[in-house]
Structure formats: structure tokens, C-alpha cells
Computed example of a mutant assay.
Amino acid sequence: MFLGTHSPKLDDKGRLTLPAKFRDALAGGLMLTKGQDHCLFVFPRAEFEQMARKVAEAPFTNEAVRAYQRYLFAGTDEQRPDSQGRISITPELRRYAALTKECVVIGAINRLEIWDATAWARYLEENEENYAQAREEVLPGVF
């Protein structure tokens, strides 16, 4: 399970060092892809393959399904962290997420998300009030 917030820096070659506590879970390979809200998603390879099977089961005769499949799979990059736990983020993915040197990596249960630090701060500020309301929608009557 991926949890927590970390603040690694993107180097001049477009490499990002993954938090040490996640490296074992990603050592077998990972899939880096465009996420929602202009962040990047990092899935362990097995988790991504499971999700890909579900996406592939959707009827490709549906225009929205085809568009989603194209967008998701065309923007995915398979990676294996190097000995220092670094991954290379392609220029296309860096542009999509507007990544600068200062980044934030958050755990999101079954994936990591990579955000530009300024974009993450803005997202938190804009969505803080919605957090309590979302809890009611996601987990009604639990708390």
C-alpha cells in the first residue's frame, strides 16, 4: 500500500528518485502514465496489467472507451528503477504534468502520483473544503 507525501527533486536529465519505502514494491517494474488532474500515475507493473485487462474488456465500439484506451496506453512508459531508485520521466510526461525541479510524490493506495510541487499545493488549497463532503460520498456513515 502506498501512503504518505514526499518531496523529491527532478534532476536536469528528467530523473526522479522514488521514495526508498516504495522501491521494493516497484523493483519488478512500474508503469508511468498520465493521470487525472495533470499529475502522473505510477503503478506497479502487476497492478497496471490488472487495470489494463479491465479497460480492454470495455466495448471498443464505444467512442469514449476507444478514446480512453488510446489516451491511457499511448501515454504509458514502462520503467524499472535504477540502483539508486531513479526513474526517467519522458519529456512528454513532464510537459503533461508541468513538472519542474520541485516535485511531490504522494501515495494513493494502489499507485503513486507525481505532481509539480506548486500544482500540488494549489490542488490542496482548492480542494480542502471538499474533503469533508467527499468523505460522505466515499464512506457514508463510516465516521
Rank of each mutant, 00 (worst) to 15 (best):
E63F: 13
Q133V: 12
R70N: 11
C103P: 02
T17I: 12
E47V: 14
L18D: 10
A98M: 12
R122A: 15
W115C: 08
G29Y: 09
T17G: 10
R15N: 02
L26D: 06
V105H: 01
E129H: 03
A46N: 05
A67T: 03
L30T: 03
Q36E: 14
V138Q: 09
D37N: 13
G35E: 04
A56K: 06
F2Q: 10
A108N: 13
R122C: 08
L139G: 07
D12M: 08
A108K: 06
W115Q: 05
T90P: 01
K101T: 13
L72P: 07
Y131C: 00
K13G: 09
D77Q: 13
P91R: 03
A108I: 07
R66K: 10
L30P: 04
R122T: 13
L93C: 02
R23I: 05
P81C: 08
E63G: 12
A58R: 10
V104N: 01
E125N: 15
A117F: 09
A27H: 06
L16M: 07
P59L: 12
H38I: 00
A27P: 05
P140R: 04
Y131A: 01
G141K: 01
A74H: 04
W115G: 06
E47S: 14
T76C: 15
T118Q: 12
E49S: 10
T118K: 11
N127M: 03
K54Q: 15
F22Q: 01
N110K: 06
A64C: 08
V104T: 09
A52M: 06
T33L: 10
Q79G: 11
T90K: 03
V105P: 00
D116S: 14
A58V: 05
L112E: 01
E49V: 03
A121K: 06
F41W: 13
V55W: 13
D12A: 15
A46W: 00
V65N: 09
D24N: 11
N62Q: 12
R86D: 12
D11E: 11
T61K: 09
G107F: 03
L10N: 01
L16I: 11
K101E: 15
R95E: 15
I109E: 12
R80F: 13
E63R: 11
Q79T: 04
V142P: 03
A67E: 08
R70Y: 10
R70S: 12
L30Y: 06
Q36W: 12
P140E: 09
E129W: 00
V65C: 11
I114D: 07
K9H: 13
A108W: 07
F48Q: 07
Q79K: 10
G75H: 07
Y123A: 14
E136P: 03
V55Q: 11
A46S: 09
L139I: 09
D11S: 08
G4C: 07
T5P: 03
L93F: 02
T90I: 02
W115R: 01
P140C: 08
E47D: 15
Q69P: 04
A27M: 09
